[in-house]
Simulated scan of single mutants.
Amino acid sequence: MQNKIKKTYKFAFKTSLYITIFLTLLSSVFLYVLHSIDVLYLLSFAVFTFLISFIVIQYRVERFIYRRVKKIYDDLTLLESSTLRKQPITTDMATLTQEIDKYARNKKVEIETLKVREEYRKEFLGNVSHELKTPLFTVQGYLLTLLDGAINDKNVSEKYLNRASKGLERLIYIVRDLDMITKLEVGDLRLNVETFDIVELVESVFDLLEMKASKKKITLTFDMDYNSPIMVSADKERIQQVLTNLVVNSIKYGREKGTTEISVENLIKNKVIVRVTDNGEGISKENLTRLFERFFRVDKSGSRKEGGSGLGLSIVKHIIEAHDEKIYVESDLGVGSEFSFTLEKSE
Score class of each variant (00 low, 15 high):
200 E>N: 02
109 V>E: 15
6 K>W: 06
155 N>S: 15
262 I>C: 00
266 N>L: 10
177 D>L: 02
162 N>A: 11
6 K>A: 10
343 L>C: 04
118 E>F: 12
16 S>R: 02
335 V>R: 06
63 R>V: 11
142 Y>D: 09
82 S>Q: 08
117 R>P: 00
213 A>C: 01
19 I>E: 06
194 E>W: 08
17 L>P: 03
95 T>Y: 09
192 N>W: 14
306 E>C: 05
137 F>C: 12
276 V>H: 00
77 T>N: 10
88 P>N: 04
216 K>T: 00
158 E>P: 09
85 R>I: 11
26 L>P: 08
133 K>M: 13
323 H>Y: 10
95 T>A: 12
153 D>Y: 14
89 I>L: 11
136 L>S: 13
298 V>W: 03
332 D>L: 11
91 T>P: 02
318 H>C: 07
145 T>P: 04
173 Y>M: 14
22 F>M: 10
287 N>Y: 07
136 L>I: 13
99 E>Q: 13
97 T>Q: 13
163 R>C: 05
283 I>T: 04
238 R>F: 15
141 G>N: 12
184 L>P: 08
293 E>R: 01
229 P>M: 01
90 T>L: 05
150 A>W: 11
187 G>W: 15
170 R>F: 07
161 L>V: 12
48 F>K: 07
100 I>V: 13
341 F>K: 02
290 R>L: 06
338 E>A: 06
143 L>V: 10
229 P>L: 03
297 R>V: 01
345 K>P: 03
26 L>W: 13
333 L>T: 07
91 T>A: 14
244 T>R: 12
171 L>D: 04
33 V>P: 03
16 S>L: 05
55 I>R: 03
312 G>M: 06
199 V>P: 00
222 F>M: 00
102 K>N: 13
112 E>Y: 08
